[in-house]
Design a protein around this nucleic acid. Sequence first.
DNA 1: CGTTATTGTATCATTTTGTTACAATAATAA
DNA 2: TTATTATTGTAACAAAATGATACAATAACG
Lengths: 243, 243
Amino acid sequence: MDNEFIKQETNVTGEGFLPGLAIDTVIFGFHDDKLKVLILSYKNTGLYALPGGFIHIDEDVNAAARRVLFSRTGLTNIFLEQFYVFGDKSRYDGTSLKTIMEARDFIPPDDHWLLKRFVSIGYYALVDFTKVIPTPDSISDSCDWFGLDDLPSLMQDHRQIIDKALQTLQANLDHKLIGFNLLSENFTMGDLQRLYETILNKKLIRAAFQRKMLGLGILERVAKKWTGGAHKAPYLYRFIARN
Amino acid sequence: MDNEFIKQETNVTGEGFLPGLAIDTVIFGFHDDKLKVLILSYKNTGLYALPGGFIHIDEDVNAAARRVLFSRTGLTNIFLEQFYVFGDKSRYDGTSLKTIMEARDFIPPDDHWLLKRFVSIGYYALVDFTKVIPTPDSISDSCDWFGLDDLPSLMQDHRQIIDKALQTLQANLDHKLIGFNLLSENFTMGDLQRLYETILNKKLIRAAFQRKMLGLGILERVAKKWTGGAHKAPYLYRFIARN
DNA sequence: CGTTATTGTATCATTTTGTTACAATAATAA
DNA sequence: TTATTATTGTAACAAAATGATACAATAACG
């Protein structure tokens, strides 16, 4: 696929990239009533990590984040937002990067740029699970969805990054209207409520939830759904931005 | 006072600092029913800027922000939070920094580290106006409060940084309880309401505001105030954190 | 001691949210 | 074809939160 990392690895001084600055992306999906996160696993190391990357010297930081997102999901026009900068000096431990490189039979010099301290800008993305084709990079075994309760042990502080991303998602869900990005174009009110309940980790009252959502004036009814369920078929809704 | 900048200036390669990464701090105060921001002005240049700085190579990023805040206000234990990373490649124009250095009779080489691209982490702080002693750094004429409607023309994208900080403050005012950081220890309900009205830029209903605030259980009555006004003396309140 | 402006709070109206209920109906089984 | 079942859409009422108005209390002032 891409050989981005190979370029970064053999480029011992990190030429062409902003030094010391990285991006880590928490890509959320929703499937089987569970929140999922895209995780990379590195060959022959047992190491798992968030998709991340570096910023080209002539690239906007937000554009770099979008590039990383696209390279893992193939998706454009996706909700993607900064949520925190992880900048504690203790957060970065070069040993995991060293392990990854050595597993690829590349022995980095001690002053290799990837082994130095990095500050990482955390982004979170909300994607339609059904539209994503998880795409590992050149040095990864795989790129896979993991449930939040089912995460492997992650490199560095990536677990805390996910936790903080989830907190941000929870805090923003109500006032920004971003949940829809996790669903397909058309969805039922039940789908939407289950999504909210999963993210907020609490039961919601069905009648009140429906009344509220419809009252916002951001949903359009598109058609009847034949659910395959032994009950009245629900409407399908579609998110429409207001002006 | 400090000679931080002189060290940075003569240190042509930026040794000892994280390269390419800066901090800009929007320090809010409240006085005369107006929101104010601390602004530095640079000697002999007509340039105005937010207080900012760089991160020592062995320093946590948040600690660096707190160091900058302390050096301008003398205050510790102050509300201070990241709100956005400004990382567009177009944002940084070395000419203003060059102007500042040349005004000090230091002619930087073209590859001086301060003239290169910087990504800046934006922080906002909420301080008690009455407790602050604005403190210029070694290369500034002055460090002064400016009303938000009264800002001078600012270096680079510092005006957008302030705008975004204000938006963040407005968005967080209700659900985080941070407004109190802008008032003295003791304040009247009227003080608090005027603060909220100023930040949110809209009138609030007095009775409802008072009922709401008292209902939150975060205010403690401390004593009567003799206002000097020809009317019933209001209570003084104090913010108490809940558990 | 009366005037004045502002405070603290009560009262009622309105809006929003919580709760319960029930008719409508698509799939399934009888 | 018809009854059963589970879920949907929405109505109806209760409770809580917010908006709006009113009024007594009172510190400073003349």
